[in-house]
Nucleic acid binder design. Structure first.
Lengths: 346, 346
DNA sequence: TATTATTTTGCAAACGTTTGCAAAGAGAGA
DNA sequence: TCTCTCTTTGCAAACGTTTGCAAAATAATA
């Protein structure tokens, strides 16, 4: 082997400190029984030589790699970014590194999961609402630590972090109702997803609790993306009796809604109020600033990371499911309905 | 060692295929001299057993880890997200994994760099404009592959990808001039950064080429963040003779500018035109949609990744510096100046 | 068919750690 | 001072690969 190795290994440190390499290893990882004076000497040598552990060797030998995998559908979404931020913060605190996987990478789910478990991660965080459960199953079979974020495991066998979607939607609807709105349009998320279902449920419940009957026409289907939000809003605006407020299942579609409203020559919130869900960073950047239901995304990431680390460091811990509360963030995109608006429209 | 090892190793595959483990290794990595029939047999065995290579072992033994490090200041910024997206796409194509480091992680720069080189990455992509050059030096000394993104190495010794900041700024200013603006405010970026300097230079040059003398008052210092953008805009608006257009050194500060203008009861672009730089995704989300100079961030990421992979796979390649063109994206935040605006102001 | 050149395969050593086990050292009790 | 116990240390094997070198198999040449 002719690799020019500038690398300082544990053996160099041992020599420098005048101890055996296993002692160095113990100082560096376990801190078990080792005499104080020896430890000091080793640490000094480490310092002097600028030694840095080789993670690959460490994890090969049975230790941990110190890497946590994060699997996300893609990066083109403020939503993911916020979660990642929380994760990153927490990981930094515990000095883990973050390995990012995006789902467009490989073909079959299960093989992918397998790859991750055999790869260099000690555990994995999943933000992949659309994947089937094959995935999760493989992970569980391999007994590999993982935590689900904003996504439920139908079998309730996984550690997970999510937020109270139905309650958040309930409160948002209630807020609109309190403002005096009676015709409130709703744009759904991707209905395959549990979170989308829950948000719709919250909306319906609030309506019923207020003694109103939900109208089919006022509920338009979306998919959590801006474009569908725009189109769903158009359908709503074309109704013979359009809503005075629109509740979009996430902020991204709310942006589409706002755009559609403007395209119809109307103003938010003067003519129509708009409310979103998530509170991604852009929500306070748009004009008018979007009133929305805040999902504590960074917090969710942070807690998921904590859960995972706990699981890695104490295998056999029972799984945990944490549900965080949402909160209504009132900004400028909602106001009381404007009586004469249907006149204005013509 | 009592690890319950469900893992299929190269030895299992060898046994299954009836060959030696080194043959399996060769099939899996080098594809050198190995008889077709043997290769087939091995591949079949791999398939049957569901074998997945152990990256750590591979890279320990001298192979590549298949991981590329990405060092960024943080995730709270659309700018980074776009670059990361490009990188991720390119990496997926070449089946590398992405290891994310954020600079808040550890203390001293050089030691950090060292850690990365000894860690599991085969190379590293740097988007860390604010770091000193210690960093780069360490990397170079260790002869570790790296590529700089949107950041210049003062010694011109590094592979790098950036964009033509001065030209972009020149064109933006020219556009405003063409619209009829004569008093154009400028909000700088963080002037420690080369890109900030270049943008200012482009602005000044365009002004001079149009026969105008830059005014000190019209140039306010910012730092690429929204908040400073807001405050710099306030200073501009408080001028006895405020500008009719404001050019912010990046989109984030342009958002702050728009907010300040609204806070003064004025309208964009009716009263004041605003132009940004970068074209982060939010630029087309705000209202009015922001006219800006597009830096092909994702493209920059993609190319940087390509450069790095090339360098990893062919060590000794000469360094390369790629500069991408910018382009003006005209949306709705600029228009010709409004004569009576100073009247309106009172 | 015998010999040589070439392709294909296998063995063993190495990569840098961790960790079980045993040896050495140090303290305490007699 | 001599055992005995407990703490500290060292040795060696293992983790799953890659790869140089040599042996075996095959193809080419005489």
């Amino acid at each position: 082997m002719t690799t020019i190795n500038i690398s300082v290994t544990i053996l160099d440190v041992a020599r420098e400190a005048g101890v055996s390499y296993s002692t160095v290893s113990r100082v560096l990882s376990g801190y078990e029984h080792v005499k104080d004076s020896t430890r000091e000497r080793v640490l000094e040598a480490v310092e002097r030589l600028g030694y840095v552990v080789n993670q690959q060797a460490r994890s090969l030998a049975g230790g941990k790699s110190g890497v946590i995998g994060l699997l996300v559908p893609g990066l083109d979404n403020g939503y993911i970014g916020e979660i990642a931020r929380g994760i990153d913060e927490e990981l930094a605190r515990s000095s883990y590194d973050l390995l990012l996987y995006t789902t467009h990478r490989t073909s079959t789910e299960a093989s992918y999961a397998l790859k991750m478990t055999k790869g260099l991660a000690d555990g994995v965080l999943l933000v992949v609402p659309l994947l089937t459960t094959d995935y999760i199953e493989t992970l569980r079979e391999q007994n590999f630590p993982y935590v689900l974020i904003d996504q439920v495991d139908p079998y309730k066998q996984s550690s997970a972090v999510d937020s109270l979607n139905s309650k958040g939607a309930y409160e948002a609807t209630q807020y609109l109702l309190g403002l005096g709105h009676r015709r409130i349009g709703f744009i759904t998320g991707l209905m395959k997803l549990r979170s989308a279902e829950d948000r719709l449920a919250g909306y319906l419940e609030a309506l019923r609790d207020a003694g109103l009957t939900p109208e089919q026409d006022l509920i338009q289907s979306g998919d959590f993306w801006r474009k569908e939000g725009y189109e769903a809003a158009e359908r709503l605006l074309n109704l013979s009796q359009p809503p005075t407020a629109i509740f979009a299942s996430n902020d991204l579609s709310a942006f589409g809604v706002m755009e559609a409203i403007r395209a119809y020559g109307l103003q938010v919130p003067h003519d129509i109020s708009v409310i979103g869900f998530d509170d991604i960073p852009q929500a306070s950047l748009v004009y008018p600033r979007l009133t929305t239901v805040r999902q504590p995304l960074d917090e969710m990431g942070r807690i998921a990371a904590q859960l995972l680390i706990e699981q890695i460091e104490n295998p056999g811990r029972p799984i945990r499911h944490v549900t965080l509360p949402t909160s209504l963030v009132i900004r400028e995109s909602c106001q009381s309905p404007h009586q004469s608006w249907s006149v204005l429209r013509r």
